[in-house]
Design a protein around this nucleic acid. Structure first.
Lengths: 340, 340
DNA sequence: GAATAGCGTGAGAGCGCTTCCAGTTCCACC
DNA sequence: GGTGGAACTGGAAGCGCTCTCACGCTATTC
């Protein structure tokens, strides 16, 4: 019935300005608020979003950019958990979500996003060391929060975990169990997480006075690279393998089994992420738990804080990780958790 | 530099109206277009989306609603393929996508969507026979395309497959192979696909003069229900099982194996969907292929057509399915494909 | 009782764009 | 040279809302 604020105002016997205050929580007498609300409900009035956005400069919509190869988003539980986390947090706050996936080139996606306008802010995954899409968003005037960050992103807002420290802790755990030849099947080279985990691994090995020569094999965060990497490491002789993530560890486990090597008796094995399946492997996988869903949610909330308190400078959040010790490195002990 | 059309117009020496025409492809002389375009590029001008939306009544954004339990979206490849299909088609057409998942109640989601405004149209999955969210969207004035449809949706636009016919064809295939006691583990009761597939199954059995008594067991589109349902059917005695979808069939296969029953020699097995893993099972699964990604894309394109040709009445698209015959029902033959 | 404060309200000026309408210009043709 | 029409352009009226400002009124203070 009532299609505009003016009509609603006429029906309620107040001015348009007052109706606007009712909708947006301005100061209005209880009586007036009651009356206007009633008329609003009767007429099923919904304010025009474009007009609100134009007048106020806020849309209540944020963009979420997960530019990974099509298919990967739903095959790799990491990305789907992340998206789920962002979506949940935004829904909780009644903020709309526009989504961009990796179905166009990064340049095109960037262009589309900036032309779209309408966005109050953006959450984007920054997993690559070099990413024109992320750079472009940061250079734009749209407030942006990164999930994961690069060394160069010192002035950006981001949420991340300390991959270096976590990998160090995990590697140290292996060393403390008495392992000396600890191999590492890396994550995808050129990704932040991959490189940082290598750094953490190296750091721990060096501190323990152990060599890493020949013990680092390039992987790509997937099962296949875990299978292949494990074979190489087995041939070179290792007594423990730290994999770039859980999927890689699952692949490595398959190779170890194929070579009749027992885990953890012959070779200890560890992953990273603690995705759902990690605890269900045989033996259950020692790994680093990082709350991926929480990371997504934290990114969304950080962005909203940024939007609600403009000009307060970049926000950086480092979420905690936990070393989750399970059968693949323990042998006799049950699951233990050490935070770090 | 130039932040508004007026500024751009001044810089280019034309009126704001002409600049608008350049941007929106109105009739402008080649010379003028050139000049304006040049200034646009130099200044990096981007028109204000809210203002465009307000003035034109179009936002270039559509909503996608996949209201399924959190987690299911990414665990069930059906939904993720669907979303991927929609996302790809929209990206192709440079249309923005707002996404709503099942993290709030249907009523709340409906409310949020309608309040959001800004949407030119909506694509929504209509898998439940009774769905207030779908009903609410259809009742609103926002153009809506359903993926899957209910009997009552005769006046709505939708894309769908003919589940009844496909289930009939598949069941008939089993009967033609000589099976007489063909069991059916249903999909989730109350879902369109689940019920329609039962209908198709019944139809084929009845036509062949075969009884279905005691041969129908309720399932829920997942592996667990396949495992359980198969046990019941095995105990009652069957020589073939048609499962509500591929995941169910995978579960059934586990039970058959546990009971030392050979597939297809002792019991033939068939699924529905032809998701990626179906061909990789042992034996490879006979199933109905429905292009899920294509369904998503078709829904998006149908919506866009609807938007571009308003007032042309509802559009209904039935996508084809194929019977894919593999080892789980064939035994000796290699993969065959029959369309239907 | 006057001065002060503060709340609730309405008027009105935009926000930046699209699009209708009314020219103006330029040709082709008679 | 005059005419009709097509192609292009500018003026200006909105689109529906937010938000500042000013005003009137009541409550408080000394």
């Amino acid at each position: 019935m009532a299609r505009t604020l003016d009509e609603l105002a006429a029906l309620s016997g107040v001015s348009r300005a007052t109706v606007s205050r009712v909708i947006n929580g301005g100061s209005v007498s209880e009586e007036t608020r009651q009356r206007v609300t009633e008329v609003m409900e009767q007429t099923g009035f919904r304010p025009n979003a474009a007009a609100r956005t134009l007048a106020s400069g806020r849309s209540g919509v944020v963009g979420v950019v997960i530019h990974v190869p099509p298919g990967l988003l739903f095959k790799d539980p990491y990305f789907s958990s992340l998206l789920q986390g962002v979506a949940d947090a935004l829904a909780e706050q009644a903020v709309g979500m526009m989504l961009w996936l990796g179905n166009r080139s990064k340049e095109e996606t960037l262009d589309r996003i900036l032309w779209m306008g309408l966005l109050d802010g953006i959450v984007v995954t920054a997993s690559q060391l070099d990413d024109p899409l992320v750079d472009g968003l940061l250079a734009s005037e749209v407030p942006t929060v990164l999930i994961g960050h690069r060394r160069a992103d010192r002035t950006a807002s981001y949420i991340d975990v300390d991959n270096v420290a976590a990998a160090d802790i995990l590697t140290t755990h292996l060393i403390e169990l008495g392992h000396r030849r600890v191999g590492h099947i890396t994550g995808t080279r050129g990704t932040v997480a991959g490189e940082d985990r290598i750094t953490g691994y190296r750091q721990a090995m060096t501190r323990a006075g152990l060599p890493t020569e020949g013990l680092i094999v390039d992987g790509s965060f997937d099962r296949a690279s875990g299978r292949d990497g494990a074979v190489i490491l087995i041939e070179r002789g290792v007594d423990a393998i730290f994999c770039g993530n859980d999927a890689t560890a699952e692949g490595a486990l398959e190779s170890l089994r194929a070579w009749q090597l027992r885990v953890p008796e012959n070779v200890a094995l560890a992953g990273f992420d603690d995705l759902d399946f990690a605890a269900g492997l045989d033996p259950p996988l020692t790994t680093i738990r990082q709350g991926v869903h929480e990371q997504g949610a934290a990114a969304a909330l950080t962005l909203l804080q940024l939007l609600r308190a403009p000009g307060t400078g970049p926000r950086r959040v480092i979420l905690p990780t936990e070393l989750v010790i399970r059968g693949s490195t323990a042998g006799r002990r049950k699951e233990e958790v050490r935070s770090g």
